[in-house]
Amino acid sequence: MHRRISEYVVESLIKLSGLLVIILVFLLFLFLLKDSLSLFGIYPLGKFLFGRHWLPISEPPKFGVVPLFLGSLYVTVGAIIICVPVGVASAMFIAEVAPKALKHVLKSLVEILASIPSVVLGFIGIIWLGPVLRDVLGLTTGMCGLTGSLLLAFMALPTIISISEDAIVSVPRTYKEAAFGLGATRWQALWRVILPSASSGIIAAVMLGIGRVIGETMVAMMVTGNSPVIPKSILSPLRTLTATIAGEMGEAVSGSEHYFALFAVGLVLFVITFIINFIADAFLRRARK
């Protein structure tokens, strides 16, 4: 009897914590939605979603989210193109190729990489990377999407490397042995057998990396120039969703149109990350089948 009660208590506690997460996410969404809807009472939804100008302190203000959305999109896509191949390749090297001593050194270095504060990276971007890119590529300014992409790729690397490496290491040894037994070279075994078996873990790593990049604020705010313009290419200055919220929240008096507009931007960001997670989940499930 006693045992049944304690079992019941533990079971309900676990159930409760599970429910709590769902409730929290739901409440967060409601909170964002409530304040965003206050904006759409005074500012038309269509103009917000498709407006091409973000001029929050003008008279009358314009809250077009398109330039901010494209800014975030450019920076994120750029960062992913840079960090996914490098990250997965490093993971393959650390997990399968590197000698044991080197492996330990590399693993701890990756961990150190993960612990660099983003504001430090932003500072490096302003002082060094921006000017270098400007001179090398002949740009008018180094404060552009590419600088942001490179630094954000750098930030996402540790996530991608360590999770992919875990996925590769956890592929059963027998797979590799069977591949060698069939006469495969080391490369063939790695590329055709181990990598596909670890693919679900690698996709999860990439998705977490994307999450890290799209939500990162400090670096984006410091090095991308923050021009609220529809970017022509990744080499021009742009303004991300996150930097807009961080840069303007301090001065937006609560309850004003500007304040609600920033909540609406937060809602857009929330929806984007939700979709990314949803896609990641779908991929993971397919990989498992």
Binding site: G130, M143, G225, N226, S227, G247
Partner: peptide, 28 residues
């Protein structure tokens, strides 16, 4: 007047960031 800063204008977060960019960029 309804004129605005050119949309190409970089909006930097501190005066020091402006100094850093000007110190290294001849076109700024």
């Amino acid at each position: 007047s309804t004129e605005e800063f050119s949309a190409q204008t970089l909006l930097l977060t501190s005066s020091q960031a402006i100094v850093e960019e000007i110190a290294t960029n001849e076109a700024a």
